[in-house]
Amino acid sequence: MIEGRRVLAGEAILSGAAAGECGRDQAIERLVREHSRLVYRIAYAVLRQHHDAEDAAQETFVRVLRYSSRLALVENPKTWLARIAWRVAVDRNKRRGHDPAIPLDDPQKPISEIASSGMGADATLQRSQLAADIEKLIRALPQKLRAPLVLSTLQEMTPREVAAALDLKEAAVRSRVFRARQILKEKLLQRGHGVTS
């Protein structure tokens, strides 16, 4: 129901695009205002660097501007934008040619966590090591499993929208997410995570 309302809202945005240059500009502005955060998050999920994600978001909307003459034909702007953002981010990742360094949130964070939480230093280090391993393993997943897994974790995207963005069936998205999680858990168990905790 909510999803249907969203699609209708999107249609309302893009119906303005058909009404000349001014309508097109307004439609693009509304797209930016409503979906720039989603686009950014999709880009960040692939690139894992804030400035790269922002550049990818910029590029996504530049592409939208380039295809603005066909804006009125877009059925669901959200999934359309998500698809463009995903492609832009993947292209950028390929162009970059190497995996970026895993960003450390804050070098002081484990120390502050140890100080604030009731956990010991070992547990905190173990947890940060687990997080780093999971990130590495996610990046090592094949593209067809990684895309549904990453997109389905975004709160803004329903499985149906993920499926539309990736040109898949909803059932395929669910099964790929399940398989991706299984693989990740197997690999983590092989690395000794979870057994000792």
Binding site: Y40, R41, Y44, A57, E135, V150
Partner: peptide
């Protein structure tokens, strides 16, 4: 970990 990635906030 996935939630952390998904909750990335832009500047």
């Amino acid at each position: 970990v996935l939630a952390k990635c998904a909750a990335a906030e832009p500047r």
